[in-house]
Structure formats: structure tokens, C-alpha cells
Design a protein around this nucleic acid. Sequence first.
DNA 1: TCATTTGTAACAATTATAGTTACATTTTGT
DNA 2: ACAAAATGTAACTATAATTGTTACAAATGA
Lengths: 137, 137
Amino acid sequence: MINTRFSVAIHILSLVSAQTDKGVTSDFIAKSVNTNPVVIRRIGSLLKKANLLKGGPGVTGYSLVKKPQQITLLEIYKAVTTEEELFAIHDQPNPNCDVGRNIQATLNTSLTQAQQAMENELKRQTLADIIEHLSKQ
Amino acid sequence: MINTRFSVAIHILSLVSAQTDKGVTSDFIAKSVNTNPVVIRRIGSLLKKANLLKGGPGVTGYSLVKKPQQITLLEIYKAVTTEEELFAIHDQPNPNCDVGRNIQATLNTSLTQAQQAMENELKRQTLADIIEHLSKQ
DNA sequence: TCATTTGTAACAATTATAGTTACATTTTGT
DNA sequence: ACAAAATGTAACTATAATTGTTACAAATGA
């Protein structure tokens, strides 16, 4: 299961895009997410590195760098994901075995396709889609 | 990152389908995967519950229940995956907040689509594809 | 009967995640 | 210039999942 950072990141960006008038602080976001403000700042930090959010010490709250239509879920996903690969492949299989020798390359090809399929779908959806869906609930 | 059980499961099934003459024991498989035989039996147990493998106490080694062409990677994935959902969604968001109240349903819709895209790709590939790719390396 | 193998419980080591406290740093408003 | 307020981040903890390991009961077949 992929951790909640991705979900929380989308939550953060949704809140920031909703409140354009006043600064959306980590404390305010934390109350909506129901977690500790440091958890928000930690993820906010990743989103800043990915050029999705701006803000910083002394500046009250975060704001968006781009419009919601220009932010894909894939960008958000990549921003908060440390591992490049979705599927782990066991290491050091036996090179003296026909299967062991070739399994890693084969799995890599195969599983990368599955990961690509998922990422393509995340690329298709934007933060604007999320916001629209949120308001229609 | 999704754990190595899935990769190891594909490795196991590849070995079992390769060696049709003699029984493929957990010890033999463990040497190819480079792990402990109990790890293999544990995953083998899951594959038996999913009706992909047969064998048991007293019977030496495992054998396939179906032909490799009839085993999709999705079946293998589901067999060794305990969680139904690929993406975790943070729980208990604030119901007194417009975003907090609706974020779970929205994320569920959105992320399920990404999961579906991945699963559809896993469904498209079979164990036979893996075996073919292995031999062509 | 006996050797062999699987099934599974139980435990340990390692790692990732999420929550928390604490505090330095930065900005803004007065 | 100063104070208040907020962010950035280090450090630590608790919890849970994963993987490896030992041990042993249960089942099979020669």
C-alpha cells in the first residue's frame, strides 16, 4: 500500500487552492487533515521542492505556484514519492539458474509497464479535477 | 513500494512451469530466489489458496494448476497482496471542513482509477509472457 | 516404517511511516 | 528595531510490515 503522503499532499493542495484570500497555514491544514502541523510542513516542503507550492519561514501560509489545471496528480505523486519503482524486485537471484539469471530484467520490463499504466492515469487527472469533484459531492 | 512477494511469486511459478519432469521443491526454489525455503513455502501457500499451485505435506514439490497462458499477473498479484487498495487514504479528516468532509470519497474515486489502470495492465500479461521473455534474454 | 517435504507458529532484525517536541530562522507589521 | 507568528528541520518515539530464521507437527510415498 502506498503511504498517505500522496493523499495528504492532494488534500493540502486542494485547501490551498480553495482559500485564495488568506494564507493557508500548516496549522489550519493540519486541523482539516487531522494530523500534526509538522507532518503538513514536511509534505509542504516536498511540494515546494517540486515547484508546486510556495511559502517559507516568516511567510504565513502556502500558495500555489501554478493553476490547478496545470498540476497533474502524477506531479504530486512524484513529489512525495521517494522510490522511483512501484514494484520491488528481490535482489541477488541465483545467476547459475536460467530463471534466476534472467528474472530481474524480465520482471523489470513487465512491471514497469504496469507502473506506466498507473502513472499515465495519474497524468490524465489534474488538481482541477479533484477540486471539481470535491465541490460536486 | 510494493513488497517482493509479488516478484518472488512470479519467480516461483516460472520455475515450476519450467521443470515439468521432477518436483520443484521449496528448497530448490529458495536457492534460485536466494532466500530461505520457508519464505518460499509461505508464498507457495498463498498461491495454493488462489488455486494457482498444488502440492502439500508429503508431496515433493509444487506443480501448476493451470497452464501459464491461463494465469494472469493480476491473479498472482491478488494472491499475494493482503490490501485491496493500492493507495492509502488518511483517515478521520475534519468533517467540519468542506475539503475534509469530501476528500476521502473524491480520492477514492480518483485513485481507484489509477489502480484500475495498473490492474488492467497486469491482467493483460500472463505467466506465459514472462516465460517467453525469460527464454529470449 | 522411515526419510523427505510441506505448513505454520513463533521470534528477531530491519525498515518505513506517522506523530511529537523543540528550536532556529525568516518575514511582516507596528 | 522589535515582537509576534509561522515555517524548516532535526531528533526521537511508537507502530506496523517485511523478511529471514528456527523448530516442529503432519502428511506422503517408497
